[in-house]
Every structure is written in C-alpha cells, then in structure tokens.
Nucleic acid binder design. Structure first.
Length: 1043
RNA sequence: GGGAGAUUAGCUCAGUGGUAGAGCGCUUCGUUCACAUCGAAGAUGUCAGGGGUUCAAAUCCCUUAUCUCCCACCA
C-alpha cells in the first residue's frame, strides 16, 4: 500500500499511543541498559479543578523531550505522573458546579460534599491524563499519583503502584509538629472573605487600584488644646495653629472603629506636647492614647497614624510592641461583627480594660466594639456610613461644595469630606478575586525560618542548580526574607489537620500553664497548647484556673486512636492513675459541655475529642511530591533508585509556591535535595503577548491545536520557542509551519519508498559508502547528532529543534534527496539506497524526542524493526564518520549550483531551459569536484554541457567559483545592463568586505593582539574575496567592451 | 520603593567579542514523476539613543528612554 501524501496525525496518534501502551513502553526502567544511571522527572502535578491549557502542553513537551531522549540513551528512566488536589481551586470548581443545581456547600454535610468532590476529581483527573496522552507524554501511567491519594473518601485506594500520599503528608505534619517546626498561633493572616479561609502571603495578589484617602480629626480628651507648629527644613516656623485635635488619614475608614491608639514618631516635634494624652475615638465612646513608635513617617501625611491592630499588618506590629489591644471588627465574610454582647456592654468592658490592662487575648478577641448601627453591615457599606457619620459630626476634614438642587433649581452649600483620589495597592485573593482582609485568627504555621537554611545552602553550593541562573537570585531573595507559612485553610477539601482536641477536667486544680512536652513516655506526639474555656469566674481571665476549670489540650497524631493513647498517657503521667473516662471522637467541637466536666467526682462518662476541622494548604502536600510519589515513608526500591530526581521542569511563576517549598520540605524530612536541576520556563502568552484568560477569550486549547495540526507540530513549536527566559508568544501560524516540516520529512520517506529504499531495510550502523554525496550526508547527520546532544544537555530545546530543522529540511530534503535521484540510476545505486535508508532512520531517531508520533509511525512502516523507535538506541557517532574532503567538495558543489540558479533567475532565464556552460578556468580541485558531481550539478543547475573555453563569448554571464570561473553564453537572452547591475552589486558587496578585512589586517594592533586563528581566517578570507572580485571585474570589463 | 529582564527584518524571536540570522509574512517565477502543508530566486535592519573599554562591540561597562515581570507595610 503506497504512502499517502500527508501524515494523517489523528488516526496515527491513536494507533501509536495504543502501540506504546500495549508494549508498556514507558514503565519505569523501560529500555534501561544494565547498570545504567537513573534519570527521573516528577511531573508538576496539574490541578484537578479543570483541564490542561497550552502552558501545560508546553511544560510537558519539554519534560517529554528530556525523558524520551534519556530513555533512548539507555538511562533507567522514570517520568512520574500525577495530579494535585488543588485545595481552594477545586473546592471553588465543585461549589460552582453544585450551584448550578441550586445547592450550597453549607447545606451539605462535610462528608457528602467530599463525596461529591471525589467524583468531580475522578472526572477531571481522567480528562487530564487523556490530554497528556494525546500530547504524547511518555509518563509511567501505571504509577499515576495524586496528592490526596489514600485520604478518607478516596475510591481508588490500592491502585497498582499508587502511593498512599495521604499517610505521607500526615506523617510529615506529625514529625514537623514534634520537632516544633509547626505551631499554632493567633496571628494576623490574610483572610479571604469569599472562601472564608486564611490564605498564605503568596496567594495574595497586590493590585494597584483607584482608592481614596480620607482625613479625620480625633479630638483631644477633656477639650485640651495644643500649639501645632510646622517648620521648614531650616527650622523656621511656617505654620502655627492652636488645635484641639490630631489629624488622621486613612484609606479604610471603617477600620477606625477598632483603633486602639494613635501613633506618632518619637522625633516628631509637632506632636510632642500631646504624646501620652488621649483622644476621643469618633463614633465610638472610647478614648485611645497617643503613643510613639518608629513606624510613622513624619514626612508623610499628618505624621500621625491610627493603630488598628486587628486589621492591618503594620498596625499589628505597632500594637504588639506597645501592648495596644487588637479589636477584631469583622466576621469571616468580611461583614461588621454582630456577635457577642451589646455594644454598650462591650464598650464599658473596653474602658475597664484600657484603665486596668487586666485581660486576655481571648477576651479582647471576644469583645465586639462595633457600634450597634454598623453591626452586620458589609465592610464597604460600613465604610460609607462611617464617613457619612464622621462628616456629620464635623470631624472630617471637609470642604464647602456648591451644588444645585435639581428640583427647586436653587443653589446651596454642602459640607463634603475631602477625599483624595489615590492609587493604592490593594490585596486580592488570587482565586477569589475579592479584597483580602487582614484578620486575627488562630492558624497553623510552618516555622520556615528553621528549615530555610539548608534550602538556601543547597543552591548556593550548586547541589541544586537553577536554570536560567537569574532564577537563583529570585530564589535567594525570597528565602532570605521568608515569613512563617500559614498552612491551615478553613476548607473541606484537603488533608485534614491531624490534631485532636480534648477537654480534660483539671482534677488536680493545677494553675498556670502546664503544657505537656514530648517526653520519653509520650513518643507519639505532645500536648501542644493549653487553653481554657468556660471559666467559672473572673480570676480565670488572669490566666489562673479554678479547680473547676478545664484544660483544652491538643494532641497531634496520625490517627484518632493514637491521639487517644496520647491523652491517656498524659493523664497517667500527670495523675499516676488511669484515665477514668472513655474518650470518644465526635465530628466537631461540642456546642455544650457535658455537666460531668464540672463535677470532678463523676466517673465513667465519655470525654469527647474532636479533630481540627481545618485542612492543609495544598502546597504543603505538593511540597512532598518528590518523595511522596515514590512511596515514602516506605523505603521503596523506587525511592532509592529515583530520588533525588534529576530535573524539575516547571514555570517560573511557581518558584516560591512550589520549588522553594519542595526544597525546604525534602531537606527537612529526608535531609536530601529533591532534584539536581530546576529548569524554569516562562509563561505562554497568545500571539500578541497577552495573558491567556477565559474572560478575554484568547485561550488556546491544546486539544484543538492537536486536532488541527497534530501533536508533533505543537510539540515542535514548543521546543522551538523554548529559549531561556522571557515569555513565549504562541502563534498558530508557526505551528502550521512545523506541521509542514513534518509533512516534508514524511514525503522524503515517501520518495524513498517509491525508489525501493526501504526494501529489506533493517536498523543498522552507518554504511561506509564510496560516493562523496553519501559520505557527506552521513557526516551531516553526525554533526546534527552532536548539536542536538549538546543543545539538550544545556536545556536548549530551541537549538535542538533548529538543528533538526536545518538538517532534515535544509540538508536531507533540499540537497540529499535531489542528489540521490540521478544516483539511483547509476553505479552507486545500491549504496545510495542503503545510505538514504540509514539517513532517514537517523532523522526519525533524532527527531523522535520532539515529534514522537510521526517518527514512530514511519519507523514502524519503513523497515523491519527489532524495537519500537522510542526504545531505539540513541546514536553516538561523531567526528569519525565526518569526511572533511567530502564536506569541502559538497560545499563547492552546492555553492556553485546556488550561484548558477541565482544568476539564471536574475537574468530571467526560463526555468526549463538547459544551458551549455563554458569553463573559463578550473584548477585541479575544481576539476575533480566537477567530475565527481557532474551529473548532479547539471541536473540541479539545468546545465546541458560543460566545454572548456579560453574566454567568455559575447553575451554571456560569469559565475565565479573557488578555483574556477564559468560562463553561461546567453546571447540574445540576457539583458546586458541587467547583468552589469547584477555583477556590480555583488562586487560592491565583496569590496565592502575586502575593505573591512584590509582595514583589520593593516592594523598592526589587530595582527598583534587578535588570536592567531582569527588573523589566519581574515587573511584567507581576504585572498578568497580578492580572487572573486578580480573575476567579477574581468567580467564587468568585458561587458563594457560589449556595450 | 526595591529587584530582575527586555528593546535586533513588517511580525515572532535566535545570536554574549571577529563585522547580523531563522521561521512566518512580502515580491517574482514555477503543476516534469517525494512534497503546492511544495520548489527556485529576491527585497527588507544606524542591532532603542548617547558615551566608554577594546585591534575589533548587537555582544562588555556607564547613561538615557520605553516596556514587561517579580517583590514590598507608607497610614
């Protein structure tokens, strides 16, 4: 069956994929040489909240190229696939899907929601795997992993080779907890009011938006006044005024309700008279102190800053330094609090606290100081109200505005607050796109400062290399300034934090803090924090427990059973007797406490313990991807074989999110680097450089591209675009071009088929032909192989693609196939067939890592093959098969053909017209080169005969060549003026070159300073150019005589 | 505010010291047996501006301009 004119990608891809799968061609270690070194790559696990986009196609193409290249080279290769559970992103996707059926997550039980989410995950994970297979990704699919595999609800537990990722994550949490690398604390965190969860710093996008700044007057208590004096740089007074207020600026007026103080810089003379005094907090019936702190910038605004510790990161730090209470104003949805005691009561208590300072953090947090009228309002609504109310009280800096009453037509004056339009950086949730609220909450943190150093050291010493090197600077900068990592999320989808809380009766009447540390007798964890609830009297607020008080104790353990054991152990170690209660796990913190807990004599009642409802940041688990996918904590053979991994190929955008955290966590957990090399690539943009997004509608679906152009074309484009650094603009015109490239190779194979090249062909070593053309193309293949290896070793996928393009299209198709045509009819026919078969095999082998489908298809159909192409040995031939004489001769031949063609085209000689050519002058080398290749030259340059001649006849054009000079008699055909112009143009170009070369060679400094080979090259060039120029001048002279 | 990067042909980009390249697009010609998803030929650049180092600069240094990205707490 003869080959089609084009490669049918759609049907071939399916067939080839099935072929590979049937052969289990991508299993870990497939095609490995005995004793071969390992080459392992962890896929950056795609999120299961959607489908793959073009960036994934790019990323995975690069990985596949490396993996296929190594597999063919006989490395023990593993490409580990898998998916990420994508915490917030998946929960959002599931909630959106449920919303279409009018179902809210809050109306479901956690278990029911998770059940639904697992089903959703199954669908998307299957889709993602299908997409990767369409792309040709040669992952070991039998090992497909998932960052939540093995977690409760997983329906695929026990899948072949699929590691229990959940257990690994939990184990790491417990171990890090026991090493004090993880702690719980009430901190100001980034709170997402849309998802009602904390998020990490990295999940916050700071975006500049148009904002406003208001100015308020906080009046001094007791009607006091002071002299407000401003001075210029020289110290001269340029403003003086008696004031009864301090001026405060804010971009978030609603937070003033939670102010705890006003801060000024200690050196700020303007406010020195009033430091330590109090001001009335507008709208709030409270007095707050004026304090000093280094934070306020005296040169900015009024120099005075309101301190709202619970809603601003800077203010929080100031508040902590100065023991200013942080009053939380908002609920989890970003609305003004409506909980707790009535405002009047809360504000009374706040005054007491301000006077006596006797309180606890817990009490301050429970105090709702939002005045009644603002309670329950959304934060943005509250902002408007606060501004309006302060303005009404005359406490806003205002301006008189003249306005027209639309009904009466009369003018009137109104007092409007001065609102400065101001660009402000506002924090947004990267998933929710809503404004992030700093919120004081209890969260779990990784104490990154403790584990960052080895991660820095590994890159500094080069144990792990980041490519391109600019990524290292970014890496250092972030890690050297690392903040604690908030890892708890108030979500349902994820690894639930393995910490249980029990309310333990304080039988012994212990007072103060008894926190239980890890001890000899408590090997599985520790009681972390000590807390108190339901205190019976006020004294408890001072941190003392009454005998009837309760201890809320937290136990970190891999399972509830282990947590119970720990509780019992602690009890025994504290009391010397067994726990008289039965511990029973309940779903959530009980709303009401069993009375027995207050009656210390009751025995035999159940004590409820419950698990922390929060889940871990998705990056905590993906941070363990390298070891988790290999079966850690089991010492699996794969772990020993493939870890540390060879290279991580990923987008520069997740350097912090993922790469840095994997470095820290692998080093912290198994004390080894996760990978030897990190290759960071840019983001894929559309043809105009715009970010692809669904709302803009410029998203390119990789499957659409594959359907239209084939996976190979997309892959080749990806490789060709992958130069180091920058963003990548993807243009479908370019993909089409590379599809054509595939067709070109396809047709070369088709040509070979038509000429019997494949008959009886088997894979074999390079033939040793006698014909120069055949020697030459073998040498070209060897050069190409070296270029590709060199390029891929340096992650220069673009250079590898370029080398292939130039070899296959520029050398094999443009020249070698054409040269072979006449040879098939001559004495060298047999060796030419053998050489062509071999050369085309090399094209397939060398191109396979980039374009696997078309090459495997041709491989299967062109000869009898012992192995799949994807397992065929990568060639090692080099300089030994390059014949310099053949190389020089073919260069001469191709240059001559080019020159003749060029001259003919410019003289408008009809393409089909065969010309008689005259040899005016030929040295020995040129004569030999001509004789060897006469048929080829005549055929490709359309020359009928070559006759020696003493001089060019009238009406001929001249073709100079190294060691020779030819003439094409074209009397009656050529236009003398045109020929003159042609020659003159060439001569001008050469003269310019000669001038340059002479300029350099005549400069004694050049000859003295430049390297010898550069000087030699320049001299050789000069000789050659002058020779050429002389010939051109002779020809021009002759034309002048004619004219 | 700090950091990184970019600026080369109409477009998208290679090119890190030896006198500028590719693909696409454009112009002209071409259906003879591998390929019109093709072939042959051609045009196109003060390598952002200025200064410096060097025998020699797109390439190294300084500077200016413009753009992009990352990080950051100016109320």
């Amino acid at each position: 069956m003869p080959m089609e004119k084009t490669f049918d990608a759609a049907q071939a891809e399916a067939r080839i994929t099935a072929l590979w799968e049937a052969a289990e061609a991508f299993r870990a270690g497939a095609n490995a040489r005995p004793g071969a070194p390992a080459f392992s790559v962890m896929i950056p696990p795609p999120n299961v909240n959607g489908s793959l986009h073009i960036g994934h196609a790019f990323n995975n193409t690069l990985q596949d190229i490396l993996v296929r290249w190594h597999r063919m080279r006989g490395f023990d290769t593993l490409w580990q696939p898998g998916q990420d559970h994508a915490g917030i992103a998946l929960q959002l996707a599931v909630e959106n899907e449920l919303a279409q059926s009018q179902i809210q997550r809050r109306d479901m039980t956690r278990a029911a929601f998770l059940d639904y989410a697992w089903g959703y995950k199954e669908r998307t994970a299957d889709r993602i795997v299908g997409q990767l297979k369409r792309l040709g990704a040669s992952c070991d699919w039998s090992r497909n992993a998932f960052t939540m595999a093995g977690a409760p609800g997983d329906t695929r537990i026990g899948h072949e080779n699929s590691p229990n990722f959940h257990d690994a994550v939990i184990k790491v949490f417990v171990e890090m907890y026991n090493k004090d690398l993880i702690y719980r604390g009430k901190r100001l965190v980034n709170w997402d009011p849309r998802f009602e969860t904390a998020i990490s710093d990295l999940e916050v996008e700071n975006i500049e938006v148009a904002g406003h700044m208001w100015h308020f007057k906080y009046r001094l208590a007791g009607g006091e006044t002071y002299e407000y004096v401003e001075r210029d740089a020289a110290g001269a007074v340029n403003f003086r005024e008696t004031r009864d207020y301090i001026s405060i600026a804010t971009t978030r007026p609603e937070t003033m309700l939670g102010d705890g103080a006003v801060a000024v810089h200690p050196s700020d003379a303007r406010y020195a008279p009033i430091v330590g005094k109090f001001v009335h907090l507008p709208l709030c019936d409270r007095l707050i102190p004026i304090i000093t702190d280094e934070y306020p910038d005296p040169t900015f605004g009024s120099g005075a800053v309101k301190i709202t510790g619970a809603h601003d990161f800077n203010d929080y730090a100031v508040a902590k330094r100065n023991s200013i209470p942080c009053y939380r104003l908002m609920d989890t949805r970003g609305a003004m609090r409506a909980d707790g005691a009535p405002y009047e009561q809360a504000v009374l208590r706040a005054r007491e606290i301000a006077a006596a300072s006797a309180t606890t953090e817990a009490e301050v947090d429970s105090l709702n100081l939002v005045p009644t009228k603002y309670r329950g309002l959304d934060r943005f609504e509250a902002r408007k109200q606060v501004v309006a109310d302060i303005t009404a009280q005359g406490l806003a800096v205002t301006v008189l505005v003249k306005s027209l009453d639309p009904e009466t037509g009369s003018e009137h004056l109104t007092l409007e607050p001065v609102v400065e339009a101001k660009k402000i950086m506002q924090p947004f949730g990267d998933r929710s796109k809503v404004v992030i609220e700093p919120m004081l909450t209890d969260q779990w943190f990784v104490d990154t400062a403790q584990i960052v150093e080895p991660a820095l050291e590994a890159v500094r010493t080069g144990r792990t290399k980041i490519i391109p090197a600019s990524g290292e600077k970014t890496y250092y900068h972030w890690l050297e300034n690392i903040e604690p990592w908030c890892i708890s999320r108030q979500l349902w989808w994820g690894h639930q934090i393995p910490v249980w809380t029990a309310m333990v009766p304080n039988l012994q009447g212990d007072v103060g803090t008894w926190s239980v540390r890890v001890g000899e007798d408590i090997p599985l964890g520790k009681a972390a924090e000590f807390n108190h609830k339901h205190a019976q009297d006020e004294t408890a607020l001072g941190g003392k427990l009454t005998p009837a008080g309760l201890l809320t104790m937290q136990f970190c353990a891999a399972t509830a059973e282990e947590a119970k054991r720990q509780i019992e152990n602690v009890w025994v170690s504290r009391t010397g007797r067994p726990l008289p209660y039965k511990l029973v796990e309940v779903d959530s913190e009980p709303k009401e406490w069993p009375q027995f807990l207050f009656n210390t004599t009751t025995k035999g009642t159940d004590i409820p313990i419950w698990r922390d409802p929060d889940v871990l940041d998705t990056w905590f688990s993906s941070g363990l991807w390298p070891i988790g996918t290999l079966g850690w904590p089991e010492q699996t053979p794969e772990l020993q074989r493939y870890f540390p991994t060879s290279v991580l190929v990923t987008g520069a955008d997740i350097l912090f999110f993922w790469v840095a955290r994997m470095m820290m966590m692998q080093l912290a957990v198994v004390n080894d680097i996760p990978f030897h090399t990190v290759y960071l690539h840019g983001l894929v943009r559309d043809a105009k450089g715009k970010k692809m997004s669904k709302s803009v509608g410029n998203v390119i679906d990789p499957l659409d591209v594959i359907d239209e152009y084939g996976a190979d074309a997309l892959r080749f484009s990806n490789a060709a675009m992958a130069s180091l650094g920058g963003t990548l603009k993807l243009d479908t015109a370019r993909i089409a071009g590379y599809r054509n490239f595939g067709t070109k190779l396809w047709n070369a194979a088709r040509f070979a088929e038509m000429n019997g090249v494949w008959e009886g062909h088997t894979t074999g070593p390079a033939p040793t032909p006698t014909a120069t053309v055949n020697k030459w193309i073998i040498g070209e293949a060897a050069k190409t192989r070296a270029e590709i290896d060199d390029a891929l070793a340096n992650y220069r996928f673009d250079q590898a693609a370029d080398a292939l393009y130039r070899f296959i299209w520029g050398k094999v198709c443009d020249w070698y196939v054409e040269f072979a045509k006449p040879l098939f009819d001559g004495p060298d026919a047999i060796e030419t067939r053998a050489t062509m078969a071999w050369v085309l095999d090399q094209c397939l082998i060398l191109l396979h890592p980039i374009s696997p489908f078309l090459t495997e298809e041709l491989w299967q159909t062109t000869g009898s093959r012992a192995k799949l192409l994807c397992h065929t040995d990568w060639p090692a031939y080099g300089a030994e098969v390059i014949d310099p004489a053949a190389d020089a001769e073919l260069t001469w031949v191709t240059t001559l053909i080019d020159d003749i063609r060029s001259a003919r085209a410019q003289m408008h000689v009809p393409v089909g017209l065969r010309l008689d050519m005259l040899a005016l002058d030929m040295d020995a080398d040129a004569t030999a080169a001509w004789k060897n290749n006469e048929t080829l030259i005549k055929r490709l340059a359309r020359i009928e005969t070559l006759t020696p001649a003493a001089a060019a006849p009238k009406g001929s054009i001249t073709i100079p060549a190294p060691g020779a000079s030819f003439a094409l008699p074209l009397a009656g055909i050529i236009d003398i003026a045109a020929e003159q112009a042609r020659l003159q143009k060439t001569l001008d170009k050469i003269s310019k070159e000669i001038n340059g070369l002479k300029g350099r060679l005549n400069n004694p400094n050049f000859v003295a300073s430049a390297p010898e080979d550069v000087v030699d090259e320049a001299m050789a060039n000069l000789v050659a150019r002058e020779d050429e120029a002389a010939k051109l001048e002779t020809a021009l002279q002759r034309l002048k005589e004619l004219a």
